[in-house]
């Protein structure tokens, strides 16, 4: 019997986490109010013709610098039911570790051929695929020498599903010191992609990332 909600934890060496993490335990939701906490996200459209291919800004433009990868996997709920027609919004840093975001003021170079944002939808079996450039790691805390490991941001929305997560790469030296990875503990393994070979397509390698939307996030797929 639990009478209180979770106590959120602060990411070690993460100043923003210290500033913004609620200190009180989360409150339980009275049963009668639970449904109101489960948004149902309407389906939206794509904006660019090559939204699935982040390796180039447009189909008629050259490929960005670095290692081109395919990321693919299946989106499902905790019961293993595929989630179809969900939108994945994707963003990652370029080969050097810089975002083409107006608030990223780092001195790391931009790549004139890399935008770094895209969107795809899952198919009827919950499968998704996109291409991108393997992102560079970057120094997040120069004062203590702490790096952000290579990662790809993925936001899943559609119907009763809502999840924002990050895909990490295997055997990266900076994985162990990442504040959020530390909070995940052994569960961090589930956010690391599994490499596969891609002999027949125009990318250097593949990374499999099956995504399971947990908890109430899958409420309308039960």
């Amino acid at each position: 019997m639990s009478n209180t909600g979770r106590q959120l934890k602060i990411g070690p060496t993460d100043n923003t986490s210290d500033q913004r993490t609620p200190r009180n335990r989360l409150r339980l939701i009275p049963e009668i109010a639970r449904e109101s906490f489960a948004p149902y996200v309407p389906q939206r459209g794509l904006s660019r013709q090559n939204d699935w291919d982040l390796t180039r800004i447009a189909p008629d433009l050259p490929r960005a610098e670095g290692v081109a990868i395919e990321v693919s996997g299946k989106l499902q709920n905790e019961r293993g039911t595929p989630i179809s027609n969900a939108m994945l919004e994707i963003w990652n840093a370029n080969h050097f570790g810089r975002y083409r975001h107006i608030e990223d003021h780092s001195n790391i170079p931009l790549d004139e051929h890399f935008l770094g944002t895209g969107r795809v939808f899952t198919d009827s079996e919950g499968n998704y695929t996109f291409w991108t450039i393997s992102p560079g790691a970057y120094l997040a805390r120069p004062d203590i020498g702490r790096w952000r490991p290579k990662h790809i941001h993925i936001s899943v929305s559609g119907g009763g599903s809502r999840l924002i997560t990050q895909l990490y790469f295997p055997d990266e030296p900076n994985n162990a010191s990442d504040p959020m990875a530390i909070l995940m503990g052994d569960d961090f393994e589930r956010n690391i992609g599994k490499p596969y070979e891609t002999p027949k397509i125009d990318v250097d390698s593949g990374l499999n990332f099956d995504i399971v939307v947990g908890g109430r996030n899958a409420v309308y797929f039960e």
């Binding site: 905790e78 019961r79 924002i164 997560t165 990050q166 589930r190 399971v212 939307v213 947990g214």
Partner: peptide, 8 residues
């Protein structure tokens, strides 16, 4: 199935 971790 074990859920994918939410992340910042």
């Amino acid at each position: 199935l074990l859920p994918t971790n939410e992340d910042t």
